[in-house]
Amino acid sequence: MKPNFIDFVFDLFSHLRKNNIKLIYEGEISHDIIKAFTALTENDLKERNESNPTLKKVFNIMVESLQNISKHADCIDERISKNGRGILLVSETDDCYNITTGNVIKNDAAVRIKKDIDAINELSKNELRELFKKKLSSGRLSEKGGAGLGFIDIRRKSNNKLDYNFQKIDNNKVFYILNTVIEKL
């Protein structure tokens, strides 16, 4: 092994330990991957005797965040795969779980996402409920099966504002990070 590589692996390990990362993944976000990681996390939380409500919230938010990537992320090469590619991190602190996803998107998508999340973050519990009902009962599913409800649902289930960031990759694309905090119940 090259010394650089050894340093990299050890650094990675130390960082993961320090930040209490329970799960990390980079790659294609396929339906099978979503199934595997949600099941894995669900079992892990069960073994740690987390309450049912916490378990369900973590599961739900993982599904919504990952399905978001699988439907909307820019593919590296559409000839190879239709699935979006991204990263997933599940981390834990004393009183909460963090679900973090990251994926590459085009600039115009970033503008749309920022607008959507900013608007949703400002809404009260009741306003979120009304917006959810309105979206539920109007419009059809998009071709990709998105319902435009994902962010509202994540915001409501987590009881926290959505935390996002965009890191510039080049003139057309950004790396989009979404972090959701779920307090343990």
């Binding site: 369900k56 599961f59 739900n60 539920l136 009962s137 099966g145 319902a147 409800l149 994902g150």
Partner: peptide, 12 residues
């Protein structure tokens, strides 16, 4: 037990 948002439209 679980319903994702895309399914919530379908159930509607």
């Amino acid at each position: 037990e679980y319903i994702n948002t895309a399914s919530s439209k379908a159930i509607f």
